[in-house]
């Protein structure tokens, strides 16, 4: 794993820059600063992505294996296509035991904030359950939901909604959750 380390430094630095968010929007209040800055984003966002050609890298997982699956309106059941992707994710995770993952569930903007949070959680859980069924240790996986808080696509049409109804598998280097 150390092979890639040097070449990834720059990327790592960029990743860490996420920590600076609060400062960028300075006029902040007392703020979530202390805990939020460090602990909050730390696990998720500060990992270098690696070289997409390296099959053990996060970039490879994201791009080649596929880090997300999509859902039908209001649904949390996995389509055959989603199962294909998740099977590959499971294989990858089984071959790369140094990674843990957080599965983020998302919804499109049609729906109330509260309901969509719950719906996102359902989707994340569906993915988690599938991965576990494929042999990934349950303690390597965690779930969360963003509801409609983090859309990928911003238009208000089905073409965007379809991409926003998703669950993303975010790898965490090192830690075994």
């Amino acid at each position: 794993m150390s092979i890639a380390a040097k070449s990834l430094l720059l990327i790592a630095v960029l990743g860490l820059a996420a920590c600076n968010n609060p400062d960028r929007y300075g006029a902040g209040g007392a703020g979530a600063g202390g805990a939020g800055g460090a602990g909050g984003m730390g696990g998720i966002d500060t990992t270098g992505l690696g070289d997409p050609n390296n099959p053990t890298s996060i970039a490879y997982f994201n791009q080649t294996v596929g880090d997300r699956v999509l859902f039908a309106v209001d649904q949390s059941t996995l389509s055959p296509e989603a199962r294909g992707i998740l099977t590959a994710q499971a294989n990858w995770l089984n071959q790369n035991p140094g990674y843990a993952a957080i599965i983020e569930g998302h919804a499109d903007e049609q729906g109330t904030r509260e309901y969509n949070l719950a719906l996102g959680a359902r989707r994340a859980a569906a993915v988690q359950n599938f991965l576990v069924s494929q042999g990934v240790a349950a303690n390597r996986l965690r779930t969360t939901s963003y509801g409609k808080e983090k859309p990928l696509e911003v238009c208000s049409e089905e073409v965007c909604y379809a991409k926003n109804r998703r669950a993303e598998t975010k790898l965490l280097a090192g830690a075994g959750a």
């Binding site: 609060p22 902040g28 209040g29």
Partner: peptide, 13 residues
């Protein structure tokens, strides 16, 4: 208007 938190993490409802 007075702000109670900064925007480093999502807050809702």
């Amino acid at each position: 208007v007075a702000y109670l938190t900064d925007s480093s993490s999502i807050v809702i409802a």
